[in-house]
Design a protein around this nucleic acid. Structure first.
Length: 241
DNA sequence: CACATTTGACCGCT
DNA sequence: AGCGGTCAAATGTG
């Protein structure tokens, strides 16, 4: 409602591209050439949108984050982006190709499902401070909200990023993935008709480097507030394209 | 035996 | 005071 015109426009175009991409991928999964190009454009648009949202002085929905920064408050430790990507790939579990170690689970106020906290297994070995939060969507139990934050310094991440030209496991950002037939590493929900835990953390391979993901759906939930922790401050946004 | 996961408690911040 | 996040000890599994 405020001055989100630019951002809205970007997002609108992005949505359109996403649709096109979705159609392309759906119709031709053997030749992701065009899809890939669209993906690039899409990524660029997203990048721009996020940048606009993170710009100072911008009155966007997230502009307050910057203006809210108080002196002495440094949030460089964990940057989060608001990129919500819903990838419906049954074959693509939530495994990012890295090793995550669950270190806690907490029930979130207002959320019917608990939130699991994961950490890089190499945190003690290589000092990888990367962390990941996996939570289930409130209205869509089939959707998993995976929030990555922190920087991956372990060789595993480096190798992964170097081996793939894409950026599935973005350095930072909120990624909403959906795995209808695949459950995360380990999360036990109150009532789950799906596959229980027991996710052997599939090693690299299920990633399918080349075919990659691709089904953008949904909208950009900028965690619009409501009072449920809509406080997001992202100072730096890294996006490799 | 080592590693990963689980659960509870503690701490910090809002 | 409440919520979110992390740590630490215990347990289970491979």
């Amino acid at each position: 409602m405020e001055g989100e015109t630019t951002l809205a426009t970007e997002l609108d175009g992005l949505l359109a591209m996403a649709r096109e991409l979705e159609a392309r991928v759906d119709g031709d999964q053997g030749a992701p050439g065009a899809a890939r190009e669209l993906c690039a454009e899409l990524a660029a648009s997203v990048h721009r949108a996020v940048r606009l949202a993170g710009s100072e002085g911008n009155a966007g929905g997230r502009a307050s984050v910057n203006g809210r920064l108080r002196s002495g408050r440094k949030a460089a430790a964990a940057a989060r982006a608001q990129v919500r990507v819903a990838s419906m790939q049954d074959l693509g579990p939530l495994d990012d190709g890295l090793s995550w170690r669950k270190y806690g689970q907490k029930d979130i106020l207002g959320a019917p499902y608990p939130r699991a906290y994961f950490r890089c297994t190499h945190r003690h070995s290589q000092g990888c401070q990367a962390t990941k939060q996996v939570q289930r969507a409130a209205a869509d139990p089939l959707l998993f909200d995976v929030v990555y934050h922190g920087a991956h310094t372990c060789a595993q991440a480096t190798a992964l990023l170097a081996g793939t030209e894409q950026q599935p496991p973005a350095p930072f950002g909120q990624e909403q993935q959906s795995s209808p037939a695949a459950a995360p590493e380990g999360m036990q929900w109150p009532e789950e008709p799906f596959t229980p835990p027991s996710f052997p953390s599939s090693p690299a391979g299920c990633y399918t480097p080349g075919n990659s993901w691709c089904q953008l759906a949904g909208n950009y939930g900028y965690a619009a507030g409501g009072g449920l922790g809509a406080d997001m401050e992202f100072d730096e946004l890294f996006w490799n394209m």
